[in-house]
């Protein structure tokens, strides 16, 4: 994917390269990389601590199906790799460096979540090894995304907009997937999420779907015209609505279903329950999809 995305604005990339070599900073020094790494740790801690302090997240290690956990961790690596194309620790120009950045972010996420879990006494030496590893592996997912996003938010962001434009429409869709996944994952493990779906009547569910779409569109629309972000292929209001807001809500629904399946919430559930849970989880997922371009 990266290769295809990167191939779009070849001219711009070449300019960037020239500008960099003119400035005499082709490759980051070890010191610069260390500073970026510290920044990544900061991002990892910020993204991870709400989930580290969530009880259900500690239990995920035992009740989560190992195969689904494995698929989820592999998917996280793919998301990190994709994010590296848009916002890594440093500007990357090749698949190899994007892969290195993805692994580095995962490493930072694992170390940061292991440190936090130990610091808070959630993981102790008396626990079985697979329990410790399971807890760290699950917490490393938000931590590693935080590590990857840290550069975009905390770092110097002069090239950021260029990087985001690289992806074009496909890149925007990818960012929406990543944002939806992060926010849906943040709330899906909690019991409140299913309890809410039991408290709501179908009328509430209907209203929540509509509110999700409207809010998603409000974010997309306001971002497009704030001058911060130019949407690729921006055209009429209706085209923005369907290509970004409705497509974004479709992504939110699919991501919600995937996250629900990952946490075993779909097992034994009837279609009406599944629809309600998807509507509930679709709300944070839609917000995540809308805000991804700001956060990352």
């Amino acid at each position: 994917m990266c290769r295809r995305l990167a191939a779009v604005p070849l001219a711009g990339e070449a300019d960037e390269l020239t500008a960099r070599s003119d400035g005499g900073q082709q490759a980051p020094s070890n010191r610069e990389y260390a500073v970026d790494l510290m920044r990544a740790f900061g991002g990892a801690v910020i993204f991870a601590f709400p989930l580290v302090m969530t009880m259900e997240m500690w239990w995920l290690g035992f009740y989560m199906d190992p195969l689904r956990l494995f698929i989820f961790l592999a998917l996280n690596l793919a998301i990190l790799f994709g994010l590296s194309c848009f916002a890594g620790f440093r500007d990357t120009f090749s698949l190899k460096e994007d892969a290195l950045d993805a692994f580095a972010a995962y490493g930072v996420g694992i170390v940061a979540s292991a440190a936090l879990l130990t610091l808070l006494g959630i993981v102790t030496g008396e626990m079985a090894m697979d329990e410790i590893l399971g807890k760290i592996a699950v917490q490393a997912v938000p931590a590693s995304i935080g590590a990857m996003a840290a550069r975009g938010q905390l770092g110097d962001s002069e090239d950021e907009d260029d990087k985001k434009d690289k992806g074009g429409y496909a890149g925007q869709l990818f960012l929406m997937v990543a944002g939806a996944l992060l926010l849906a994952f943040s709330v899906a493990p909690t019991e409140e999420m299913i309890l809410i779906s039991f408290l709501m009547t179908p009328w509430h569910g209907l209203a929540l779907v509509l509110v999700s779409v409207v809010m998603l569109h409000a974010f997309v629309y306001s971002l497009e015209f704030s001058g911060q972000e130019k949407l690729p292929g921006h055209g009429s209001v209706w085209r923005t609505f369907f290509s970004y807001s409705i497509a974004g809500y479709g992504i939110a629904v699919l991501v919600s279903l995937y996250v629900l399946w990952t946490f075993g919430r779909l097992d034994g559930a009837g279609p009406a329950q599944i629809a309600m849970m998807t509507a509930v989880l679709g709300f944070p997922a839609a917000l995540g999809a809308a805000l991804a371009r700001l956060v990352v």
């Binding site: 779907v209 369907f242 290509s243």
Partner: peptide, 27 residues
């Protein structure tokens, strides 16, 4: 409009209408 935009908007529309339709029917 590129093909990808048609596909993703179409999938999104189907899913949104399906959610509204099914939950609306339940309601």
């Amino acid at each position: 409009t590129p093909v990808l935009e048609w596909i993703s908007a179409g999938v999104g529309l189907v899913l949104t209408v399906a959610m509204l339709g099914f939950i609306g029917w339940q309601a």
